[in-house]
Nucleic acid binder design. Structure first.
Length: 451
RNA sequence: GGUGCGGUGGCGGAGAGGCUACGCAGCGGAUUGCAAAUCCGUGUACACCGGUUCAAAUCCGGUCCGCACCUCCA
């Protein structure tokens, strides 16, 4: 068995994964801000890191996987429009968990909520002020980026560049342009918490640092998220944690998934080119698994282009595999699949190996176990098959048997005319049923299946 | 402008110095009254120009093109 290799954004290299404690792996992935439905792009990290979690659970004794819920944020306040933000956040947290479950993503071990960590964030912020890395100004608390020598190690930026490339509108309370908010004041009608700096709420980056410290300590094995979080979000998390922890690394391995694209462009809210998982599941009921497979057909660091055609193609392939593994007991994941995954989570290669396994009569148990390693073929029973709306079950059976009779007569017919007549009737029935979405399959033994 | 990631057969998509995946579609065949399914066979592609090498899609230099981050974003 070869060792797990992971591409590390910190070094821009593929490295051997070296756990802090091989008996207990720690992983933290940035989760959603719950103010709206998640789109398919938001689902990509969920599926990617769920797959990694499955591998880690297979290869190591124990994994604790955390994914946060950001349930305090200006967008949420906006969405609540003066109402109780908990209504919004509860609603969308529930939708998020349902939609991700439809993609066969297991729940992480812990899903900390920002609002439950406000005290810890206040402690962290106070510590940063004490250590001279943060300052209070105008009811805000800001992190002073220039106090950290190695700021920018993840994104390849330098403090000098950031100071030089000052944005057009630098907030008046900032000492320097790159400084970022750790705490901000709340007005009377905005949700807020009491703090040494008045009633207010935490800045976005603060929660992750606080949550990681409380649940895992100074340093975790893997920190993950989308490519767009590298800067500023993860960079600022690193700044907060390192400066508070005397320079200890926040995470040893930083992993970032690429984007889901639409016609080559990033799927995003601001571009308006997004489809929510919720909508998609309504459009393709029960195809969550096919959506998952689509997300895994490309390597996680590469872009993957979203298409409905891709979902249907994946579904077709899954159908074949389901059929092939009907009644088969899952055994052990194939080493080929495991090896592919251990090589920086090469899911496209793993899927290729699945195809190979499906060709081997003797490895169906492995095929099933391997597919499940990827979160696929988890359904226990095959589709019961829905019945057409306009036709009762008995009507279909009647038509199928009428066709069988016509077919039979056609085969036995003496004259050419007779034969054509009967076959024409048989084909007519096939066409009629096809229009209702019912497909007929003649089997070699003379019987006919329909679905 | 800075930084990063890419450009592989009709499409999707691995590989990363020699053995040129895989899937879908296509084509040919078997089977079939028709259809589907299935099976067999079938594809020498790596943006461009130089260089290194016995050997480059893979390494080096340059060119062109695309995307992304630098502002909330998975």
């Amino acid at each position: 068995m070869s060792k797990l290799k992971i591409y590390n954004t910190l070094t821009n290299k593929k490295e051997e994964f070296k756990p802090i404690n091989p008996n207990h792996i720690t992983m933290y992935v940035c989760g959603p801000t719950v103010y709206d439905f998640a789109h398919v792009g938001n689902a990509r990290p969920v599926v990617v890191f769920d797959t990694l979690a499955r591998l880690l659970r297979h290869d190591y004794r124990k994994l604790t996987y955390a994914r946060n819920i950001t349930d305090i944020d200006d967008k949420i306040i906006e969405a609540a429009a003066g109402g109780d933000i908990a209504e919004i956040t509860n609603k969308y947290t529930r939708h998020y968990e349902e939609d991700m479950a439809a993609l066969n993503a297991e729940m992480p071990d812990i899903t900390p909520k920002a609002t439950e960590y406000v005290e810890d964030m206040i402690t962290l912020i106070s510590d940063l002020i004490e250590k001279g890395h943060a300052y209070e100004a105008d009811d805000h608390v800001l992190f002073q980026v220039s106090t950290m020598k190695d700021y920018g190690e993840l994104s390849g930026r330098t403090v000098e560049d950031l100071l030089a490339g000052a944005r057009v509108d630098v907030a008046s309370y900032k000492k320097e342009a790159p400084d970022f908010v750790l705490w901000k004041p709340s007005t009377a009608d905005q949700p807020g918490w009491d703090s040494p700096w008045g009633r207010g709420r935490p800045g976005w980056h603060t929660e992750c640092s606080a949550m990681i410290e409380k649940n895992f300590g100074n340093t975790i094995d893997i920190h993950g998220g989308g490519l767009d979080l590298i800067f500023p979000h993860h960079e600022n998390e690193i700044a907060q944690s390192k400066c508070s922890h005397g320079g200890a690394a926040l995470a040893n391995h930083w992993m970032h998934n690429g984007y889901l694209t639409v016609d080559g462009e990033k799927m995003s809210k601001s571009l308006g080119n997004y489809v929510t998982v919720h909508e998609l599941l309504e459009e393709f009921p029960r195809l969550g698994e096919a959506i998952r497979m689509c997300l895994l057909t490309a390597h996680y660091r590469q872009p993957v282009d979203f298409s409905r055609d891709g979902i249907l193609q994946a579904n077709k392939q899954l159908g074949k595999w389901y059929k092939l593994t009907e009644g088969i007991e899952a055994t052990k994941p194939a080493s080929e699949v495991l090896e592919s995954l251990r090589n920086d989570l090469n899911t496209p290669k793993a899927i290729m190996e699945l195809h190979q396994l499906s060709k081997d009569e003797n490895r169906k148990g492995e095929l099933l176990a391997s597919a499940r390693m990827l979160g696929l073929l988890e359904r226990e029973f095959s589709n019961p098959g829905s019945v057409g709306i306009n036709l009762a079950h008995t009507d279909i059976i009647a038509l199928v048997s009428e066709r069988a009779e016509a077919k039979n007569k056609g085969k036995l017919a003496e004259s050419k005319e007779e034969r054509i007549k009967h076959f024409a009737r048989a084909d007519e029935i096939r066409a009629d049923l096809a229009m209702l979405g019912i497909k007929l399959h003649d089997k070699p033994d003379g019987t006919t299946d329909w679905e």
